[in-house]
Amino acid sequence: MMPSAKMLPLMVAGGVVTVVVGFVLVVLIISTFSNPPFGLGNAPAQPVAFPHSVHVAENNIQCEFCHRNVTKGEAATVPAVEQCLFCHQNIDGTSDTASAIAQTEIEKVRTAFETDQPINWERVHRLPDHVRFIHEAHIRYFTDETIPVKYGINGEEIVESPDVAQTCTICHGDVGNKVEVQPKTGQSLKMGTCLDCHRENSVPTDCTVCHK
């Protein structure tokens, strides 16, 4: 049955409302499930193209070797340039497996060290100012063998105590096999994520544990 001419404006109006509301809903739903929303939080270009995959997956360097504060304090911290030079004094990228890019990037690090210039990395995960997150405490928990069962961030049961590097992947995902680290590499790091995991593990969920 053809709608009457009178009903047309009503139908048009209804259609517009449906489209607008639908669009808003879709945007909100996508932004809820995609992390970060629409790739807005993709890590920007780093000053030195540092491939985690080469260091971790290929050369088996443990996370805490470079992020050495991760077992000692709140922040994991990026390594000092000096520390890169531990290896890169000798490894200059001229071996046949390395590409020309590797050579130039390693050269950047060496130059920085020689000229006494700190490297300005771009932050990938930004913790809000009102949140206290202590890496050390989390690693201590997951690596503690006296606790029989622990639960991962998605509720998965962890029976074997992981080592430090495995603990990192619980939240940060498989960084070791990624060339470029992006927020989406790991878990969505929202308050609910923290809260779910704390509840699973029966550890304190008092607000002041994380909020400052």
């Binding site: 909100l28 739903i29 932004s31 809820t32 929202k190 308050m191 609910g192 809260l195």
Partner: peptide
Amino acid sequence: TLPFVPYDYARG
């Protein structure tokens, strides 16, 4: 009341 915001009902 929706899960879009990082707080509230969705988090109990």
